[in-house]
Design a protein around this nucleic acid. Structure first.
Lengths: 221, 221
DNA sequence: TTAAAAGCTGAAGGATGCTTCATATTATGA
DNA sequence: TCATAATATGAAGCATCCTTCAGCTTTTAA
């Protein structure tokens, strides 16, 4: 199922405690370097240095730099996947509000108890300057959206997080769609419909068109 | 406002038609290389080659490779920003369904009339193999979610796009939050609340707890 | 105790790729 | 027409960095 390309497979599995430790420090160092220096300055030498091991050790467990990154990302993705599966099991058969809460908390918790790694991986593409641009565009869109919504409801100042959600909740679906196989017109059309439903429901709540749905805000942790 | 770091600024602006054309072909070539060969194989030499100009020409307009990427991404972001502002203007003062439709279509159209570029930029981080992993995790989460929802509603087979939206709509907000400044606990808590509202509303529709909201599905293009 | 296995080291090979600059070509406008 | 500015060229310098490997140290288990 998880068919990892051959060049990305681990070269050797640790058998002694010593090497398991080495593997751990290499992982940690990779994340640190990613966070402190960014992807473009992540070199095998630098990782090894930060980890306090020699480059040779690194290459004992990873056939190449790419495999190292793949492993780090794989770990994180597994963590997310695990968390979501648990959340869904916990939500199974429950009421809708609980399901929603499980999904949100499951995802956010999983991301947040690996904040450093999460940030590093998201920023992976955004070498300095580019993430700045992206942030500015988000700001710009948020302003425009706030402005539009203010035409219908004056007291939006306290709702900046809601505007933020409106601004960003379309990103994930589109990103995922576009990252996969070239999207078909049918998929695109279907996605349009669903996203409109998604936003419509949320905006109606936000603009006070529906009475607040009865649900307990389950503040886990 | 758009404070581009000095090393990323264009080195020289075209004054003759000839150089304007050169700039265009360089942009196009960059996108092509990004799509065909991926980020890791995007070299200035290769871009110049594909563009049919010399490397020197490239460096006449961009101080370095990073600036080239920044420019390409900047263009795309501007396009998105522009589109969203227009959408918001069009939606201003309209009914909620229209607003939702404007936002969705505005965003999707903007992304889609630069599909190639969109895909290239999203994949930028995901050198071969890593995007595969990500896709698998999405699949995994979608299955879990489908399973959970099926405990409440049997006929979900026809709703795969809805499940997809549930699976992915949390990504954007978290990604954006984490990519910016280190998130505060207050922001995190507020986001939890909002995302639960977002999902709750959508899930209620999906599970048939609310009568379908009256809204015209505005199929632009 | 000791041979074999596992793990570690880091200098150096080799490849790649960014960037420069001296030179050549083309365009402008007086 | 001609001087000047704009633009284009691409070989080569320079730096970086991935990766290997022969030898050394530590652990295992017999």
């Amino acid at each position: 199922m998880s068919a990892t390309p051959p060049q990305l497979k681990a070269r050797k599995l640790p058998v002694q405690a010593r090497s398991a430790h080495t593997l751990t420090v290499i992982f940690d160092a990779t994340v640190q370097v990613l966070l402190r220096d960014g992807y473009s300055r992540l070199t095998t030498t630098r990782v090894a240095e930060r980890a306090g091991v020699s480059v040779g050790s690194l290459y004992q467990y990873f056939p190449n730099k790419e495999a190292l990154l793949a492993a780090v990302m794989g770990r994180h993705l597994d963590h997310i996947g695990e968390a979501m599966e648990q959340a869904c099991i916990a939500g199974k058969g429950q009421d809708t509000a609980t399901m929603a809460a499980q999904l949100v908390d499951g995802f956010m918790d999983a991301k947040l108890d690996q904040v450093g790694l999460s940030r590093a991986l998201y920023q992976l593409p955004m070498a300095l300057g580019r993430d700045e641009q992206a942030a500015q565009t988000t700001e710009r869109c948020a302003r425009a959206i706030h402005n539009m919504l203010a035409s219908r409801k004056a007291s939006l100042e306290a709702q900046s997080m809601a505007v933020f959600v409106v601004t960003t909740c379309l990103i994930g679906p589109m990103q995922t769609l576009l990252t996969g196989h070239e999207p078909t017109p049918e998929n695109v059309a279907a996605l349009r419909v669903e996203l409109k439903q998604l936003l419509l429901g949320y905006l109606q709540q936000l603009l006070g068109e529906t009475k607040p749905q009865p649900h307990t805000v389950n503040d886990s942790q």
